[in-house]
């Protein structure tokens, strides 16, 4: 399982969530977290049907979406998903 974080440099929620993800990465150093800046990859908006930033996609090894979270999310909510799919 890997997580694709789709965000933008100009989005304050993405900035605020950065700290939460730093903590998560420390707790799960083996977890693959892919950062995707929408300004650099605008095609991803259509591809993943993004309606708000940041959007966190939990995908399996075959790149299939398992679940998604978006916006200002509690660390606990993210950890529940990580433990569920890891």
């Amino acid at each position: 399982m890997k997580i694709i974080k789709i965000g933008a440099i100009w989005c304050p929620t993405c900035l605020i969530m950065r700290e939460v993800w730093e903590k998560i990465q420390k707790k799960y150093p083996q977890l693959i977290i892919e950062d995707c800046d929408i300004d650099e990859h605008p095609e991803r908006k259509e591809q993943y049907q993004i309606i708000e930033y940041p959007t966190y996609l939990f995908v399996n090894d075959q790149d299939q979406e398992l679940e998604r979270l978006s916006g200002d999310v509690d660390e606990r909510e993210i950890l529940i998903r990580i433990n569920k799919y890891l």
């Binding site: 100009w10 304050p12 929408i38 908006k45 708000e52 930033y53 978006s70």
Partner: peptide, 8 residues
């Protein structure tokens, strides 16, 4: 609770 994906 996030940024709307509009007018990027």
């Amino acid at each position: 609770t996030g940024c709307e994906a509009k007018d990027e």
